[in-house]
Amino acid sequence: MTTQTNENNIIIQANDLSIYYGSFRAVKNVNLGIQRNKITAIIGPSGCGKSTVLRAFNRMNDFVQSAHNDGKILFHGQDIYAPEVDPVQVRQMIGMVFQKPNPFPKSIYENIAWGARINGYKGNMDELVENTLQAAALWDEVKDNLKKSALALSGGQQQRLCIARALAVKPEIILMDEPCSALDPIATLKIEDLMRELSVKYSIIIVTHNMQQAARASDLTAFFTMDEDRAGLMVEYGETSQIFTRPKDKRTEDYITGRFG
């Protein structure tokens, strides 16, 4: 495997991205090109701005009033922070799965149907629900009680439901912020397998503090760390196989061998 630098393969690209919370610079000068149909892991110590960068990719940072950016994020070459861009539209195309499974307190069926409905889905809803649940490897477990409350599912099932819910909106990119940190190991592995299957159709970016998970589940890995000024920065980005066996940067090496700090 070699790093593909083919420009056409980049689906979303951060150019010189700095993100501020008020006057505090949380992330500085990130240049990161995410490849289509690959799983990209973002790893790094706590507070180095992984989630911040991830949220910038679908403008979830808009909800933090103090947050603002420098630089650009290009999605298919279009700056998603350009004034004419509708952030709601961006979030439909770039879905998100959160750290804690957060299904809506509604039925399993409604959890999936709702997002599609508000996005104007006009097709056969039953079909969509079945397809997305199948894609999220949850169908067999829930097909007999789709009317059951989503909150009655196990944590791992809930997280897969959240993934299915994101798929129902037909995104191109799925952002996952530590999606397994609240799950047990088996549920974690199931999600990782699922990510692998999904990467055929979607591009996935996963933030994780579990290095084994990044190593197991991702194609590419970006390592972030913090400077003395507590601003996060990207140290190294490359094939996962290379990052975890032959990292180029001493800081990456120290972090992934567990000799950080």
Binding site: F244, T245, R246, P247, I256, T257
Partner: peptide, 9 residues
């Protein structure tokens, strides 16, 4: 211990 990078090598 799940060694990585240098340790793994």
């Amino acid at each position: 211990q799940q060694p990585m990078a240098h340790d793994l090598r």
